[in-house]
Nucleic acid binder design. Structure first.
Lengths: 141, 141
DNA sequence: ACCTAGCCGTTGACACGTCAACGAGGCCGT
DNA sequence: ACGGCCTCGTTGACGTGTCAACGGCTAGGT
């Protein structure tokens, strides 16, 4: 078959628009008010909340579903800005947040939560949330 | 409130994983087999199928929900590769596909359709598709 | 005619993501 | 000890996305 039929095209279109839109809106809101990207917040949260203050880079990559090189690049930028430290230990690299990183995270958390609520959670009717969650998990594989 | 509660976090997590995953899988499949990105296919489809062969850049930006500069950058790269032409006319720029662009699109269409089906459409149970479409349109605003 | 305002598109700087190549260690079989 | 292999991480090149600043053009008001 050559192309998508009408129903398939509609779903694909709505998928692209909503995923791009939600991502862009949340990112713009968080970045504008805190100077951290959504990815920064996610990384800081994992490193800070997990592993008793330290976290292996590999663990973080798995937890976030990121490729090694993506995480490496991102951590380099965050390290440059003084948000995290990297210390190489036996069999890996151990991550810690800096004082500055923790301060930034504390400032960012409420902004991030508000943005996620406004642009995702509250935009979905309460009685559809479970079903949506199930479908999203299916799609995540 | 400081952070997201459990249910909110789950939804946000599943949203991020599924949107990133689906996008990445479809893109990798299309790019690997055709040399075009998903965005390339989308642009070529709009320009080729719409407007009788020519399309104003602004129209395309609106149709795709893209910002001007994003489209401008992307079209520069596509023009560089010989996929489209730009001709400035009164009050805008008119886009056309090149012979090469049309050939690439014809090759890519079935691959793109198959990827979208495999990674999105067919991964959603048939009886949930309408509800998902409705929710996605809500989120797209 | 002039000025202002708005729309359309481009550009440059920079953040982000992906891929493929590389390198450092650890581990295992011989 | 050696060689091969795997895992973990880095790097460079390149494509992509965003933001802010700019230039050209058009339309309206005076």
């Amino acid at each position: 078959m050559a192309g998508l039929d009408e129903g398939e095209r509609e779903l694909w279109d709505a998928w692209k628009r909503s995923t791009e839109g939600v991502r862009a809106r949340i990112n713009a809101e968080v970045a504008g008010e805190t100077g951290l990207s959504e990815a920064d917040v996610s990384v800081l949260t994992h490193v800070h909340d997990g592993g008793g203050g330290a976290l292996r880079q590999h663990e973080l990559a798995v937890a976030m579903g990121w490729h090694r090189s993506r995480l490496s690049h991102h951590l380099s930028r965050m390290q440059e800005r003084g948000l995290v430290t990297r210390e190489s230990v036996a069999g890996g690299v151990e991550l810690r947040t800096t004082t500055m990183g923790r301060a930034a995270l504390l400032r960012a958390r409420p902004v991030h939560a508000a943005a996620v609520r406004r642009h995702l959670v509250d935009a979905v009717p309460a009685r559809d949330r479970d079903r949506l969650l199930t479908l999203l998990r299916l799609l995540a594989d």
